[in-house]
Write a protein that binds this DNA or RNA. Structure first.
Lengths: 137, 137
DNA sequence: TCAATATATTATCATTGATTAATATGAAAA
DNA sequence: TTTTCATATTAATCAATGATAATATATTGA
């Protein structure tokens, strides 16, 4: 005998609110908590954008690029030299960062200089660094 | 005629320091800048850990989980209901977060409750959210 | 105009990552 | 002790990602 949607179980159970969610077919133990948190949870679009934003920092190469640009404006080939990577690889990552509007560039003749284009980037890097350093303890 | 390593080009060029890096075989235009920034750049290990840390935030499901846990301690099936996802999917992500020590859990009978295990997590989420919101303008 | 050079782009390949279904574990209730 | 239930784990699948090589674009100088 299954406990179908909407049917509450009787008994000495300490958790009162208990239902089955049709979405994922699983028992909800704390319906009140779920409802409350669901109200606080940002829109799907927003959480997606948040994830996309952090994904930018989720690659060692991009971390190095962003860190470097937080220290100085640099051109592509200098970044290649700094990172010891192929030019196309660096350009790829710069493209991603550019499209996400967290770096910008300017042209001076043949050379294209990159720099940070967002005030939050350094803060994010530093916050992450704090985490890493405290983790070492 | 190629400009081999160590041979500097003469002329009216405004950039003085110019060499070729053996690592990636590319011309370095601003050697001084590269050297200076290289000194500031964290260790490979650290940048890798930083990227790994941010990668945790680089998935919408994990963002939602972390956001939810910043609002309340929750059990797995409640998270499933909240996110409308399969239990194994949620457990998978919880495992990742657990192994990275940014969430912790406690057992109460059959139910396992999860909560944040790092003081920085909320700060990171909020910083990211600020970025998203300002971007909307 | 032609050659050199800095950067961008494209196609490809190997790797990683997220979700699902199926199964296992472990605790409590019957 | 047997069943139920919450969660964990495993394996399979499919999509996304990052590096490379090759090629294209664009700017400068001869």
């Amino acid at each position: 005998m299954k406990n179908v949607a909407g049917v509450k179980k009787m008994g000495t159970r300490q958790h009162d609110a208990e239902t089955t969610d049709l979405t994922c077919g699983i028992r909800i133990i704390h319906e009140d908590t779920v409802d409350r948190v669901k109200g606080d949870l940002p829109d799907r679009t927003v959480t997606g954008e948040l994830a996309a934003f952090f994904k930018l920092f989720g690659d060692p190469t991009r971390i190095c690029i962003l860190w470097a640009l937080s220290k100085a404006e640099m051109c592509v080939c200098d970044l290649c030299a700094l990172l010891g990577m192929k030019q196309s690889a660096v350009s790829q990552q710069l493209k991603i960062l550019r499209q996400s509007r967290i770096v910008k560039n300017r042209r001076d003749g043949k050379v294209i200089y990159y720099s940070l284009d967002d005030s939050h980037i350094e803060g994010v890097l530093k916050l992450g660094m704090n985490h890493i350093l405290e983790e070492e303890l």
